[in-house]
Amino acid sequence: MIELDDFSYAYPTGSRPALRSLRLAVPAGQLCGVVGPSGAGKSTFAHALAGFIPHALGGETAGRVVVGGRTVADTPLPDLVRDVGLVLQNPFNQISGVKFTVREELAFGLENLGVPQEEMVRRVDAVLAELRIEGLADRSPYQLSGGQQQLVALGSVLVMRPSVLVLDEPTSQLDPVGSGQVFDAVRALHRAGVTIVLVEHKLERLAEIADRVLVLRHGEVALDGPPATVLADPRLADWGVAGTRYTAAARLARERGLWPEDRDLPVTLDAAVAGFRAVTGGVESR
């Protein structure tokens, strides 16, 4: 579904390339997590998949990004939005400001694309139901909580039925309740078969839903694999990525001889519960 073919990119003002020779493919239906320290190129990566690089931001590119069979650099942005939906960090800045209800806000992209009215109503209703925000339909987008605004931002790209969804740290500005709402929606979309690239630093959440995790560092893929392997890698901390506390606890336990050398370190709550049960033989601690 997504292919990067030796793709490199440098910002117009940047002295060093922000992305270097990326070679990877994301198959249809995969939920691919992206993590890395700040400045690693995560956001740049997201913008490149959605076509804002090179279309809107300029700069030097080499190699290709192909999404859904179309080469991003050769496809005009308004056509690309039908293939790739992009959701950004700050929910407030994604509200169009020209619509006065959530229902109209969701329809904004479809209006721009000239989708017939009946079709528009159908799609907006479907997305309202899919994200379970029917109750917000007639509210002003400005009256919503951050989590609700982010769901509206997600919905307003979903109405265009993109086959790929790119989310750039969608929960970094949200409280736990709001983050939970966004993660639930992402999980549901993943089940519905949407290909998802999720840049996220809440690793304990990412570990539970991702099929695969990429670690970016200095614009390169430093690690690539299933979350259980990648997120337990001991180098993450040196690279400025905080692993989960489950991994940290098991690692410290291993240093103190309380966790077998040959047992993998857990990255999720479930794996940690199973691991520590096995280690303690299920004995209650005093």
Binding site: P176, E204, R245, Y246, A249, L269, V273, R277
Partner: peptide, 16 residues
């Protein structure tokens, strides 16, 4: 609306 820290959840799941 408070979700306990990861290790609190873990130790409670372990029945400590």
């Amino acid at each position: 609306g408070v979700e306990p820290p990861q290790l609190m959840r873990l130790s409670e799941a372990l029945g400590w």
